[in-house]
Design a protein around this nucleic acid. Structure first.
Lengths: 252, 252
DNA sequence: CGATCTGTTGATGCTCATCAAATCCAGTGG
DNA sequence: CCACTGGATTTGATGAGCATCAACAGATCG
């Protein structure tokens, strides 16, 4: 049941059997959330660490005028808020965008883990660094690329991460994100998102069918979006998707 | 000489005498850089941790077409790259934008510190979390605010941080950032940056004189920019600037 | 089977980019 | 001290990209 987390951490280093047990022990009860429910909200006291096990989630902030800015999309295995041990209040919110399950780890158990499992601590720390690195790339994306390139770049990132998370092994991935949510993440309106997607479809780069996104031309969308996956720090990742992709195309 | 770093860490928790000594011991030789020189570059092997002691620096990424996206402005006391211990290559660059001095800490010494000084480790960890939090707010800024509000928001952030870093105790701060660099950070051109600054001046919100930025109306620029300093996590910070500001205005 | 959420398309206007030229300013050297 | 130089800033004119408003078409679901 904690496989997604282990799979995630193993992008940094392999987990020993002992470490798997340690993780299993500290993992608290599993929460099930509906689509649209918040896991935690900005300004709330932070309590425990959450781990996304199934489904998708978004990290977001809301401005006073009600505008939502999405800060990250979370896939199974992602840690939602390792911050908890050091910061007393959340500065952002987290929302399930599909039916999702989360495991929680209490502060005490996290502290125990830090004390007794140095290798796992490093893996958690690494996960935080990757989150930060992704944030930096999103800033580049929104700050300096056109809307269509932004969206294409996000698609490249999501495919690469979905693949690392074991959600897919080809160029298709489940895609539960609405155009409104996509716009909130890319800093554009849902209307313009629709036009951008039409453009990407007409260009033969992607297509959509029953809530899946298909990347039709991996090489071309990568170069169109200037996607360089180094920032995902997935060095220890496994073989490439089948089809027209290759390992070097995906991870270099 | 390491006072800026201590001042920075004390925004999280006070440093004991023992901890000050520990810091002093591990701090390596001081580097002096000219304006425009890089401290480290993207794709380079990461070697040691750098701490900015004097001057200003920018964290940035460059896209293939040569466009620069600034990811952060660093003030004295800021840690440049705590990442180093876990990531083998940098995914971004760091550049001095004034003559600046940096101290370096070797990987081994950082590891030693983590092992022997749990409280300092937490402070370093906290510093990383704040960097990440600032990145999130920048994403909101660029993704969902107009150019003039973006710039105003940045000014609010810089004043608050400059004050926490002990660079000023009123509503003025040294301002070595060119309009080009400001534009690179805000995702706008230098031409438009110039127009935005003219607007903010005409509105009576700010003024510039001999490389200093004066915030003329703190309450109004704060509300104009929707600035909410909670994300800087400066809870343990000291009294407010003099003039028309008050603690609650600055830190709430 | 209406109700509601999501996606598509068109018309119009604002924000900001782009190109270009002029001005200002700090430094440098005669 | 003044002329020169290269960077930084300002201003104007024009156009591209995206927002906004509005209407409609499909989905999805109780």
């Amino acid at each position: 049941m904690i496989e997604p987390l282990i799979k995630r951490l193993e992008n940094f280093q392999p987990c020993t059997l002992d470490e798997r047990c340690a993780l299993k022990e500290i993992l608290g009860p599993v929460k099930r959330l509906q689509r649209g429910q918040d896991v935690f909200r900005a300004y709330e006291k932070s309590t425990e660490v959450n781990v996304l096990l199934e489904g998708w989630a978004t990290r977001y902030k809301m401005t006073k005028d009600g505008h939502v800015q999405t800060l990250a999309f979370l896939l199974p295995g992602d840690l939602c808020n390792i911050h908890v041990t050091l910061v007393d209040r959340m500065d952002h919110s987290l929302c399930a965008i599909t039916p999702a399950t989360f495991a929680s780890i209490t502060r005490e158990n996290i502290e125990k883990l830090y004390a007794s499992q140095p290798r796992l601590s490093r893996a958690f720390f690494w996960s935080m660094l990757v989150d930060e690195s992704i944030l930096r790339e999103w800033l580049v994306n929104i700050g300096s690329r056109s809307a269509s390139k932004r969206v294409a770049h996000l698609f490249c990132e999501l495919l690469t991460r979905a693949w690392a998370a074991g959600l897919t092994d080809d160029h298709s991935l489940p895609f539960p994100i609405t155009q409104q949510q996509l716009g909130d993440a890319m800093g554009i309106t849902s209307v313009h998102t629709s036009r951008v997607l039409t453009y990407l479809r007409n260009e033969g780069l992607v297509c959509f069918h029953n809530h899946h996104l298909d990347i039709l031309d991996w090489a071309r969308i990568k170069s169109f979006a200037e996607f360089e996956p180094a920032y995902l720090h997935l060095a220890n990742a496994a073989p490439a998707p089948a089809g027209n992709g290759s390992l070097s195309q995906l991870t270099r």
